[in-house]
Amino acid sequence: MPQTTETQRAWRTVLARIESDLLEGVLGPGDRLPSERDLAADLGVGRSSVREALRVLEVMGLIRTATGSGPQAGAIVIAAPSGGMSTLLRLQVAAQGFPLADVVQTRLVLEDAVAQRLSTDPARDLAGVRGILTAMDADGLTAPEFLALDAELHYALAEASGNTVIAATMAGLRTAIESYVLEGSARIEDWDAMAARLRAEHHEIVDAIDAGRTDAARVHIRAHITGYYRAAGLVPETH
């Protein structure tokens, strides 16, 4: 049964209150939200509206809920800053999609920042990234297998950068990126040659980052991203 305007307004009131408390520091990771009864009384809404708002927050990855009593019961804010953003972005991609040119441009901005940040960080940890490189060097990978690892590699670099917003955005766009690059692989006549080229480019990018060669890392990653999309005939030009 569709929600009435009044019902929608009620649970959005609850969301607005919790959002305000998070922004003002009244609530933070690990804190317990007021009980359904207290929120309902305080905001003048029904407990069903409170439950609806809590379901939305849980789907977004901002809280977890547990029934019963004790320290783990109720609704608790969880320290997962990327969860909600990634989920919402994935849903947006699934519902409407984004123009490919916009996805490419966003990747260029984000991954350029990742290359710069990692290459200038003496404490960078690329062990996980190099593990994916090793997996990609294996013989006999199909195009879908290779490109799934490719997406994992780029996400791992974003995660290694330590910027949670960039990592969350890359996670949210991952499905779109994988679908576009896989679609493009069907247009490449010699996939083996392309896979060899991409492997070499990945190693160039990671080696430049690991050596602290910031300019080279940025040039390599931009050329890598735009080069594939052009070779696959997905976009004619990217500036």
Rank of each mutant, 00 (worst) to 15 (best):
I209F: 06
S35D: 08
A135R: 13
E189T: 15
L88R: 08
R47K: 14
G227W: 01
I188C: 01
R199W: 03
Q92E: 14
E36V: 12
L149A: 11
S86C: 12
A232D: 00
A176Q: 06
L147H: 07
I78Y: 04
A75Q: 02
Q96Y: 15
H224C: 02
P34N: 04
S161G: 12
E237H: 15
A53Q: 04
L33I: 08
D21V: 06
V219P: 00
N163C: 04
L133S: 01
G233L: 08
A113V: 07
A73V: 10
T226F: 01
G184V: 02
V14K: 00
D21W: 14
P34C: 00
R90N: 05
P2G: 03
D102K: 10
A160G: 02
I177D: 05
V181S: 00
T238W: 09
L147I: 09
A135H: 09
G74R: 00
A148Q: 14
L15K: 07
A231G: 02
L149E: 06
G28P: 08
D137E: 13
V181F: 01
I78R: 04
L108R: 06
R124F: 03
N163Q: 07
L89D: 01
L43D: 07
L27D: 09
R9V: 13
M1A: 12
Q3L: 13
R213G: 01
L126C: 06
Q72H: 13
A232L: 02
A232F: 01
A151K: 04
T65P: 05
I209W: 02
W11Y: 15
I209D: 00
G172E: 01
A200G: 11
A151F: 06
R117Y: 07
G74V: 05
E145F: 10
A217N: 00
A41H: 13
M85N: 09
A95D: 13
F98K: 05
R107Y: 02
P236S: 13
E183P: 09
A232G: 01
Q3E: 15
L157S: 04
E237N: 10
R64N: 13
D150W: 02
G131T: 08
A200H: 07
A171I: 07
E178G: 07
V235Q: 10
V165D: 11
A73M: 09
P29L: 10
T169Q: 12
A16N: 14
Y229T: 02
P34V: 03
H224S: 00
P2S: 10
G233T: 05
G44V: 05
D150S: 12
A208F: 00
